[in-house]
Amino acid sequence: MTDPYVRTAHAGDGPELGAAHARAWHDAYTGVLPAAALEAATPEALAVEWEDAAVAPPSPRHRLLVACEGPAVAGFAALVPGSDEDLDPARVGELAILVVDPARQRAGHASRLLTAVVTHAGEDGVDTLVTWVLESDKPLHEFLVGAGWAPDGATRELWVDEAGGQVIRQLRLHTSVPVPD
């Protein structure tokens, strides 16, 4: 078995990232998100988005990190400047997404990704990280709380269908970023 590691995404990663993203979302959110939203989350559509993020990040503080087992992609995480109006984007970073392929979960990939996100955030001068978690996503919530994150009291509701009939609630979690040595 090849040692697992985390690296920065590069050109050509889009198809594997899109496939992992689609599998993870279908596994975690079937019955939570509307079927139409999940149907749109195809590996091909997501591959285009992640390939663009890998080759043309909007700023140096936009990071796409990839967890690997040898050459195979196991998961990924995206770090971006804090985007909420109540946050200072110069001091706050946001974990925009954390995905581990369902077939590769419980092998430490999420922990390695989270460690890499915190390290990069610290290098960027960020002192706080936030992320939004679906209220119903207990596994992700418990993982992040176990890693030292906590709710900061912010919540939001997202309308996830065109008619505005289905609403999901999200909670914002935060954690402090240690000052790099």
Rank of each mutant, 00 (worst) to 15 (best):
139 P>M: 11
20 A>W: 02
149 W>P: 05
43 P>A: 02
178 P>Y: 08
121 A>K: 00
39 E>G: 08
32 V>F: 09
22 A>T: 02
108 G>N: 04
59 S>G: 01
155 T>C: 14
99 V>L: 05
89 P>L: 03
99 V>S: 03
6 V>I: 03
111 S>A: 12
103 A>H: 08
78 A>G: 02
121 A>G: 05
31 G>N: 04
126 V>E: 01
89 P>C: 09
55 V>F: 03
69 E>T: 14
141 H>Y: 15
110 A>M: 07
95 L>H: 07
36 A>M: 04
10 H>N: 04
137 D>L: 05
156 R>P: 10
72 A>G: 11
45 A>D: 05
174 H>Y: 06
53 A>T: 01
55 V>A: 05
32 V>S: 06
3 D>A: 13
63 R>I: 00
33 L>M: 13
146 G>E: 06
155 T>I: 14
53 A>Q: 05
170 Q>R: 13
91 R>F: 06
45 A>E: 07
171 L>Y: 13
13 D>P: 08
70 G>Q: 13
39 E>V: 07
165 G>K: 12
179 V>D: 10
152 D>V: 13
174 H>F: 08
34 P>K: 10
121 A>E: 00
166 Q>S: 12
21 H>I: 05
103 A>K: 09
112 R>I: 01
39 E>F: 01
138 K>W: 11
56 A>H: 11
164 G>I: 12
67 A>H: 05
154 A>M: 10
9 A>K: 00
176 S>A: 14
18 G>D: 01
98 L>T: 01
4 P>L: 05
123 E>T: 08
122 G>W: 01
113 L>E: 02
54 A>E: 04
14 G>H: 03
102 P>D: 03
65 L>S: 02
145 V>E: 09
160 V>I: 15
40 A>E: 12
33 L>F: 03
62 H>Q: 06
85 E>Q: 09
175 T>S: 11
25 W>N: 00
46 L>D: 00
45 A>K: 13
